[in-house]
Amino acid sequence: MLDFEGEKKRSKVLILQLAPMIDVFVLIIVFLIKGTIMEETAVTKPEGLNLAQSVSREQSENSPQVIISNDKVEFKLVDQVRPIAEFKEDDFNPRDPIFKAFKKFQEENKNLENANHINVISDRSTSYKVLYNVVKILRLSGFQSMLFVAEGEGQ
């Protein structure tokens, strides 16, 4: 005879449902990947260059670069390199073909954001005289603002 009065206690075994757990983890991973911001470094420190130290916490911008080292000035935006001696006096030739190259660069990039800003990356020992003469040429060519790059304290 079956005994219906007393109930047998059965222990329920908890079954781990893996399928929904995997679903949720996949979703979380997808959201994390979508939320990751990957940007190219705006400024790459040139080899052999000692950047100036700054207390600024501002991030650098992605703008055309001019690199002033101990022996040369590289105008990366127009792919030209000039010896630093050309900038030791304020007698740069106004008919120099570099001005044409700058004008061409500006025409080709007029719709580009930050095309009129220049990242000036200089060795810390560069004299103010050389720096000023380089900046003067860039300003005469129509570039609106100079962004002086230094090693900051970061954010």
Binding site: A52, S54, R124, Y128, V135
Partner: peptide, 29 residues
């Protein structure tokens, strides 16, 4: 003309402290 880029940056840091002056214009040596 005998001061250097590091010193320019230090002066600019001082002028821009507490966002006092954002517009800085370089003048001739």
């Amino acid at each position: 003309s005998n001061l250097n880029y590091q010193e320019l940056i230090s002066i600019m840091d001082g002028l821009r402290k507490d966002d006092r002056y954002e517009d800085l214009v370089l003048s001739s040596y």
